[in-house]
């Protein structure tokens, strides 16, 4: 490879890295997201130890916090936020399918409302 072509490759690499930095997030943002996820997990665990905080409020809080973590990982670590509609559709269609399956199975055995 000549010096010129090496320089072109380096420039292209730098350009694509800059573009990726703009499209996706950088390492600093990933560390901050991981910190956020760790804090949410700590909150999840902590609320299960609060005396008197049980039943519907506890279940609802745990589900909301779980959904927040799930969507954060999918959007930012899996970069689904930056993917075309087709891939978003495929994944969320699968997720809806899983939820529908969950509800159908538990309804079939009349166990949906006893589950939580």
């Amino acid at each position: 490879m000549t010096v010129t072509s090496e320089a072109v490759v380096e420039a292209e690499t730098a350009d694509s890295a800059d573009q990726l930095e703009a499209d996706h997030l950088g390492p600093r943002a990933y560390w901050l997201i991981a910190l956020f996820l760790a804090v949410v997990t700590a909150v999840e665990i902590a609320i299960t130890y609060i005396p008197g905080f049980d039943g519907v409020p506890l279940v609802a809080s745990l589900i909301i916090l779980g959904v927040v973590k799930f969507l954060t990982v999918v959007a930012f670590f899996m970069h689904l936020k930056y993917e075309p509609f087709t891939m978003n559709f495929m994944f969320y269609f699968g997720l809806l399918g899983a939820i529908a399956l969950f509800v159908a199975v538990l309804l079939s055995f009349q166990a949906l409302f006893e589950t939580f």
Binding site: E83, T86, M87, M90, F91, F93, G94, L95, G97, A98, I99, L101, F102, V105, L106, F109, A111, T115
Partner: peptide, 25 residues
Amino acid sequence: RKTAMWAFLASELMFFGALISTFLL
């Protein structure tokens, strides 16, 4: 390949959805 991977992961979601439903049952 990326499209196929997302489709595979969607099917895996349903697989684990079935296992979680069974556990709750």
